[in-house]
Each structure stands twice: as C-alpha cells, then as structure tokens.
Design a protein around this nucleic acid. Structure first.
Lengths: 219, 219, 219, 219
DNA sequence: GATGAATGAGGGTTCATTCAT
DNA sequence: TATGAATGAACCCTCATTCAT
C-alpha cells in the first residue's frame, strides 16, 4: 500500500536506499516524498516564494521528477492540500454521528482538533489555505465543499439535537457554528506569528472556550 | 495637511489633474497614491506575486517613482502596514479607558471593529499580516508590539474591572482575551475565502458571540 | 578669470556661499565644481560606474545643473579630460624648446612629470585615458593628437640634437621614444593597483631609469 | 581532457553541432565558450558596460546558462582573469630557473612575452587588469600575488646572478625590475589606444629596450 | 538659470518548465 | 522512468535624462 503523506513527524527524506518494492511502489514513494517536501517548503515559504528546486532537493529527487507526478507547481500545491485534508473528512463525519451529551462531544472534538490538526502538519495546511486561499479559488472551494460545509453541517446536526434536548439554551451558536471553531483558527494563526513573543496553550485555550460556551460547571 | 491613506473607499488614482498644491503636497499625494495602489495589489496578489509595475500603473506613476518614496518592495510593504495600523492604536487605547458596564463597552468595541476594520481596507491589512507575517518577522513583531499586546493589555484591564464588579463570572476570557477577538479574525478570513459560497453577516456574528459570552438577556 | 580646474589639492566643494561675483563668474565656478567632482568620481569608479547623482552631490549642485553645462555624461567626461590635459600641452612644448645637455633636459622632464602629473589629479586623467580610451576613440584620438604626438615630436627633436652632439650613442630611443616615458606610465598604473602591497618611489624609479639610459656616472 | 580557454585565435562559437562528448565534456565546453565570449565582451566594453545578454549570445547559450557556471557577473569576470593567467605562472617560473647568460635569458623572456602574451588574448586580460583593477581589489591582489610578485622575484634572482657574474653593471634594474617590463606594458596600452594612428612593432620595441639596457653589441 | 521629482528603458538575476541523455 | 543542464520569460531595481516649478 502506498503510504499516505506522513502527518505526524517529518523526517528528512532518506537517500534512495535499496528498499524492497516494485516499480509502482517506488513511484508512489517518490510521490509521497515530493508531497512531504512540498509541505515543508510551502508551509515555510508560502506558495510563491517556494522554489521547486528546494522541494526536489528535500525530497531527494531531481527537479524533473516532480513533473512526472504533478502537472506544474500549482497542481503540486493543490494536490498537496487535498491529499492532507481528504482523510480528515471521513474522521469528522464519524464523530458527528456519535450520540452523546453535547459537552462530551465538544470535548471529543477539541481533542481531535488538538491531536489530529494542531499537533500535526495539518495545522500547516490549514494555514496554507488561509494564506494562499485568496489566490487559489479552486482550493478555497474544495476546502469549503469538502471540509467546511460538512463540518458545519455535522455541527448543526449536533446542535439541533442539543437544543431539542435542552442542553443548549442559546441558539447563537447554531446560527454561527463558526463561533465554535474560531478559537482553533486563532490558535493556528497565533502559533505561526506570535508564539515567540507569547506562547499559547492551545488545549487550555480550547477548554476555556468550552467553559464559556457551556458554563464552567458542566464539564 | 498630508492626507493619510484613504481607509474607506478606494477610487482609482485620478490622472494628474491640475489641483492646487505645492511640491510637498504633490509628493505626499503621490506617496499616498502608491500606498493605496500597493494595498490593492498586495491584498489581491500577496507580497511575492505583486509586481511593482502594477502598483505603479495603478497609482498612476512610473515605476521609478516608487523608489523615490520607498527603499524597495519590502519597505513599501512594511510601511504600508504600519501606515494603516498606526492610527488604529490610539483609537483602541481611547476606548479601553472608558468607564462603562462591560457589555456596553463590548458593544462599542464590536462596533469599532465592524466600522473601522471590517468595513475598511484595514481588514485587508490584517489579512496581510496573517498571510505574510511568517515571512516578515519584523512585521509580526511590530503588529504584536504596537497593536496586539496593547489591545490585550487594555482588554485585561476592562475584564479585571468587570470581574471585580461581578459583571463577569468566568475568568476564562481573562486568561485568554484572544477568545474575545477570535470571531473577528474568523470573519476576516471567512470573508476573503468563502463569502462567495456563504456570505457572513459580521455584525450578527459578533453579537451572537457577545450573547454567548454574556448571556442573551444582558444586552 | 574663471579659475581652471584645481589640479593639486582637492577639497570638498564648499556649499554655495555668498562670495562676490556676477552671474558669469558663478556659472563658471559651478562648471569647475562639476568638473572637479566628476574627476573625483570618474577616477574612483570609472566612466560607466560613475553616477551623475554623485557628481552633482559632490559638486554641490543639483543633478539638472550638470546638463546646463554639459550635453550628457559622455560630454562631461570628454570635456573633463580635455580641460585637464590642454594646459599640459603648452608646458611640454616649452620644455622641448629649451637648449641644454640631454641629461639635464631629461632630469627636468622627470621633474615635470613627477610634480605636474604624478603628484596631481592629472595622473588620474592619464589613467582614465588608459582605462576608458578603448571605449572613447574620440578621446584617444584627442590625446594622441594633442598630447602624445607632440610630446613624441618634441622628444625626437631633443634626441636628434643629442645624437648629433654625440651625447647619445644608441638610436634605439630615437626610434622608440615610448621607451622614455614607459616607466612613468608603469608608475601611474602601479600606483593605482599595487601601492598597497608594495609602494613605489616614483622619483627613484625615474632616476634609475635615467641611469640605465645614460649610464650612472653622467648625472 | 577539458580544453582550456583558447588563447590564440578566437572563432565565433559554432552552433551546437552533434560532436561526440558526454555530458561533462559538453558542460566544460559551454563553460569555455562562455569564458571566451566574456573575454571578447569585457575586453571590448569593459566590465560595467558589458551585457551578459551579449556574452550569452556570443557564447551561443541562453542567459541563464551563464549562472549555471558562474555565481554572477563579477565571478565570471574574476574567473575569466584567473583562468587565463594561471597557466602563465608556471611558464614564468620555468624560465626563471634556466641558467644562461642574462642577455640570452632576456631575449627568451621577450620572446615569451611577444608570443604568449602580446599575440594572444592574454594581452586583453592584462589590459583588463589595468582598466578594471581599481574596481576589483581582489583581482589586483590575485594578480600581484600570483603573477607580479613571482615574476619580480624570479627576475631579481636572475639579476642577482648577473650582477655577481659581472654581466650587469648598474643595479638600477635590480632595484626596479618594473623597468624591465615597462615597455611591454606600454606596448599593450599603446596597441589598444593608438595603433590606428601609429602602429607599434612590439618585437622591435622590446629589442630596442634590450639594446638600451645591455648595449647594442652584446646581443 | 537652478532645482530635484519624475520618468522609463535597460540589465542582472531568478526560477518554472522542458528535453536530450 | 529519472535526471539535471539548459532555457528564456519575468521582475526588481538603477540611473541618465527631462521638465514643471
């Protein structure tokens, strides 16, 4: 199986060692190496300032090889974002179908956010969508269609339940589910810009947020 | 008086008409025209993808003229951000010194945010800090030092008051003032990326947020 | 009288003080200031790398003023060389007409070279002819016609005399008067390139040269 | 073997014919073509006025190709000078070690100068050092350290020998070996500036010079 | 005349993309 | 398939020259 882009740690690409594996495996491995390298570079430099030379070097392949796997720089970028976010979609829908008290669900969601997004390269991808999205309408659309709208949909479902059960008095958050994820976004942005001046404890931030929404005693 | 960079509307640079004005005025006007054009271009294309050729054309000046006012592309960018944000700082501190019930103050702050930031080019500058900040540490530092830390400081002052007066039960927001502005940031990001799919009523969003924080009845 | 370009010392241009002097004097003074500044800059940077901005600043005039006195950068350069070298021509011819033993004349010539050329800005002008001449055929021609050919002519006259009087046995130097001035040129070049590694005592060099030509005892 | 920069003739770069040769050979050939073209252009225009566009066209490569072989314009220039002069150093030292009557050695040196420098592109490189040296201290230093000081050293050795043997009466030339090469330099400069007005027979000039130094009869 | 802000052509350098090996 | 040398369009920046004041 062609391993998906490693999300957690991010080791330097090993030099093309003689691992076992047929043509197809090798090709897929190269593709993944390029994606991983591209993520590093795009996250660090932004789309425009990233040089494919650097991506190739980091991936341990020749520059031309990139073009065997991706039409051009833009396709590499978009494929990268898609490849990182796609697996997320499934996970999110699973959570939303669970049936549990709202607060418990919220805790679970926070936990998923912290461990599956904030602590991984996915955080960088989200940041890339924020920073490069305006120049890549297709990407913004993909993200909206495949991720955001589903997340919002799922959340609205949860919240409707909660309101019906009387677990939630205000319907503000039902109208604006963005309010639920806002602190997460802020944390992602903050971490890239201001952590060196004032580090942010994301988990604590998110729980303070829940306290605000549900009242402190309800945990 | 040298007019500051127009923040509200953003008309195309008028052709060099024969307005009254000495050399200094003309020079200052040109500088402002360049800044305005730069804001348009940087906001639309990002720093790296913006061509000074386009900035010049939009400002109605020759390419070389830019270099009479700014050392290079980077200085233009940084001066732009500073010139737009600097006036903001004073305003923010004025508000923070007012003495009024927390909810009233919060309403005022929301109002200032909507009318002075969200509805103006400043929104674009904030977005630029978010998108380009990682490549401009100096800029992130400027923003943190001159804007963010002051805003946070002022907010903490307000919140301390409120807690002492018993207007605020949870101290969560005191520990993480970021939670107060999070919806504003989200609105800014959303507007750039997803408004065409699902427009966002910022004022309503912000007030829903206040309802969540203070309870609906307290307005 | 409009003072000629100062050849000896080279003080910074004084700011436009209120000296006495009518329009014409002031204009001429400005012209000289520009020429002096141009000499400094051309000598230090070469023709192509010299910026008229720097010349203007050094001369204490505005950039546009240069164009009131010289058609363009090239004319400034050529006029500069001419203005510095022209006075030299007369001097050279005077010497050549003197009637004295060859060795004595040679000593005099060496002295003139050292004090009137090597120790002055004229050295820089000679260097400029050497370095920029290939790009300014007109200039090379001027120099050849107005200076070199006359010097050679005069020298041949002297040498013919000397041969007739039996003061000079070899006619080598008659056929190649360049041999007489060669050490002077070498000194000029050396001083610009290698003096920091190995300083050259020009006067001693020139006299050693004379010793070689005439024998040591003849002084 | 990677051919060194052709020193003698200087044909236009042939269009990329299908000669035999691996990648490395081709790369080296291109490098040499660029160096040869650069020599032509620098010699004709000087450093500042030379356009890399022209160098590329003359070398039959694209502009970008230059940057595959040289960091920038300055590196190209300095590498060019070094590549042309380096082989010279060895030759010079070989001659200096020979043991022969001074006059014979001098004749040999003159011969080497005429055939290996004056009749080749090396003449142009020497001229470049003279014309551009002031703006390239590194280059002047290289030339002094690698060429000049060695030549002077070697000459002093020869001359000491000669003095000890009584072949040389005056020690003037021992103190100023520059006097030996001065006519060579003058010839180089003359050829670039005044040959069209008055051609110079270098070989005759150099021998006249030797006659002056050693007396005519000693040849 | 004098100024210096404004112009815009020109050139060094970068880098996405191609293609011969 | 993979390579990486080669390409050349694009862009930042400089500076000689002009011209309104």
């Amino acid at each position: 199986m062609a391993k998906a882009l490693r999300i957690g740690p991010n080791p330097q690409a090993s030099p093309p060692s003689k691992r076992a594996g047929g043509r197809a495996e090798k090709s897929a491995a190269r593709r993944e190496a390029i994606l991983a390298a591209a993520l590093d570079e795009f996250a660090a430099q932004g789309f425009a300032a990233t040089r494919l030379d650097d991506v190739a070097r980091r991936a341990g392949v020749a520059k031309g090889t990139i073009y065997l796997h991706f039409r051009d720089k833009e396709a590499l970028f978009q494929d990268l974002v898609r490849s990182v976010l796609s697996p997320l979609v499934g996970k999110l829908e699973t959570i939303a179908q669970a049936d549990a008290p709202l607060r418990a669900l919220a805790e679970r969601i926070v936990d998923v956010f912290v461990t599956e997004i904030y602590a991984t390269r996915r955080k960088d991808v989200i940041r890339l969508i924020i920073t490069e999205g305006p120049r890549f309408p297709k990407l913004a659309e993909f993200y909206y269609r495949e991720v955001l709208s589903r997340v919002i949909q799922a959340m609205r479902g949860l919240l409707r339940h909660a309101i019906e059960r009387g677990e939630l008095e205000s319907e503000a958050i039902f109208r604006f589910p963005q309010l639920l994820v806002a602190p997460g976004l802020v944390a992602i942005i903050w971490s890239g810009l201001f952590d060196r001046f004032e580090p942010l404890d994301v988990r604590a931030l998110m729980h303070a947020h829940l306290d605000l929404l549900f009242g402190k005693g309800t945990r």
